[in-house]
Design a protein around this nucleic acid. Structure first.
Lengths: 153, 153
DNA sequence: TTGGATGCAAAGATTTTGCAGTTTT
DNA sequence: AAAACTGCAAAATCTTTGCATCCAA
């Protein structure tokens, strides 16, 4: 039952405040990528006074500390998630915004290849991949002539 | 000498304006990922009246049309690039922000695995991977005790 | 006690929208 | 002529910052 990650926040020169812990717990309990709005929603009951700047500052802190990951899933804002021992990743459908979780082991071949070839050590907790999900792929192939230019304005 | 991509913008219900073409040419000539500021800089001499909303609208249009790709490289704003026949990808160093280009073929194994296992068709032109570059990795290992908690505020 | 963290308010930055007028088709 | 697009201005978001106060160590 090791709550070791708490201890990793007890670093000389830094302080483990209730707010900081609350933000960590929020994304940990969420168990998946969450937006600022979702994090605030989660914090409201127990910590109604916790402010937006504080959440942002603590998220940045946690990302630097390696306990959280920040990702852009294309929704117009960043999403954050707790970095557990078991990483997982995201396949994001560009059409319907469905997110498929991808187990970490799936990326091992890529990881090794990057290290061998480029000496690059990827931070795979920051990993999101965009594309088309099976369901939308199927829909698209049914409509044989699909011009795909969105309207603007 | 095929300027075929221009023709792909001549779609019924859409119009090929000088501005739209200019934005396309800007990212095409840039040859790499560029920010809004960089795009505007490039457009200024030839198209001094081109406005920010127009650039944004056309970039969104081009992304939908499959001629441009939007990526978050962690710099606080999106970067855009022309989607040529030869895709390439980015290894972004989280420490020094260096960007290493990765040839498309490098991702074929992953691509195939995703398709086989999940039926997911990745849009690999949207690909960016964060991590630590060889140079920073070396620096880090030289300083054996490196607590890596950034300060905030 | 000390200086790191919070809360508040305000600002900064990126990106979007409404609308009248212009331009492509 | 019709409707898509532009330019302008303003707004909507997301995110950061300054500063006085508070609190963990």
């Amino acid at each position: 039952m090791g709550h070791d990650w708490k201890e990793s926040l007890r670093v000389p020169g830094h302080r483990l405040t209730p707010q900081r812990l609350a933000v960590l717990e929020a994304i940990r309990e969420a168990g998946c990528h969450c937006t600022l709005a979702e994090i605030q929603e989660r914090l409201k009951p127990q910590h109604p006074t916790l402010t937006l700047p504080t959440v942002y500052r603590n998220l940045r802190y946690l990302v630097n500390a390696g306990l959280a990951a920040q990702t852009d899933l294309g929704g117009g804002c960043h999403v954050y998630e707790f970095v557990a021992d078991k990483h997982h990743h995201h396949l994001v459908c560009l059409k319907c915004r469905t997110v498929i979780d991808l187990p970490d082991s799936f990326l091992d071949p890529l990881r090794n290849a990057l290290r061998d070839r480029y000496g690059f050590t990827p931070c795979m907790e920051h990993f999101a991949l965009f594309g088309v999900c099976p369901s939308c792929e199927k829909k698209a192939s049914e409509r044989s002539s699909d011009v795909c230019l969105g309207s603007d304005g």
